[in-house]
Amino acid sequence: MTDTSVKLETSAGGDDSRPPVLVRSPRRKPPSGSPVTRWILRILAVGYVLGLVALPVGTVIEHTFENGLEPVLESLRNPDLQSAARLGVFVAVISVVINTVFGVGISILIVRYRFPGRRLLNAIIDLPVSISPIVVGIALIFVYGSGGWFGPALTSMGIQIIFATPALILATVIVALPLVVREVIPVLEEAGTEQDQAAQSLGANAFQRFVRITLPTIKWALAYGVVLSLARSLGEFGAVRVVSGSVAGESQTLTLFVNDSYQEFGAQAEQDAFTAAFLLMCVAVLFIVIIALLRPKEQTK
């Protein structure tokens, strides 16, 4: 084994205030342990990942195309699938926009200001990821449903939330709530307030400082958070399942379409389910690739 190790280096110059830059190299030091242990560990780890993830994913692709391309194209022409895809994308995009605006705003408040309840606020934002999506769904029904706390008042104003698009958006916003915040906060914390103060002494007002300093500082973290949120939002199923009613062509998102078609137990219905699942899977893999590309950029910032 040749030793091509690269040590962890701090950035050159030594005189500056930047944190040490992690030089990530695949072979920093020869791996420890005997060759036999190493092989056992390697096979165990790779085998576990491949068996648990890659194998099932491969099977679904095989299932989708087992009768050739024509049934897949037939599914794609299904108007229910098309409208489910449109609604799914619409709900996801609106939710991501809401979570981005909220996420950036609340991150700035949490990092730059001290106020009572700040830590509590920070903890509440994380709460939704630890709650079952089904619980999120029924909670929305309890508050906004026709028999819920605000339901009657909303109905009298002519606003329907549950079993309509607003509920889909609300449910999706909740389950993806912390994703932007968790990416943006560390970057803002590291950047500090000096650049902001410098801009202020150069004459920039609050809006100019946000656009010219804060936004460029967090842009990669924000992009990363947005992609994560988009993936989560497009893929949300449980919470949406509870509040949607899943009427084909009306309140059925693509994930609901997968479920409903699969439950129908017809050959074409099953094919529809697999085709929709395949589409979602392609989007998921695309997101993973984008995230992998964004990650190093974020680190070099």
């Binding site: 205030s17 000096e194 150069l202 300093i213």
Partner: peptide, 21 residues
């Protein structure tokens, strides 16, 4: 007066360089 309304230039110990510019 807020800093942007004073005719004052400020130089920070840790430069406060705009890293993205």
């Amino acid at each position: 007066l807020p800093p942007q309304k004073r005719s004052v230039g400020f130089v920070f110990q840790h430069y406060a360089a705009f890293k993205h510019l």
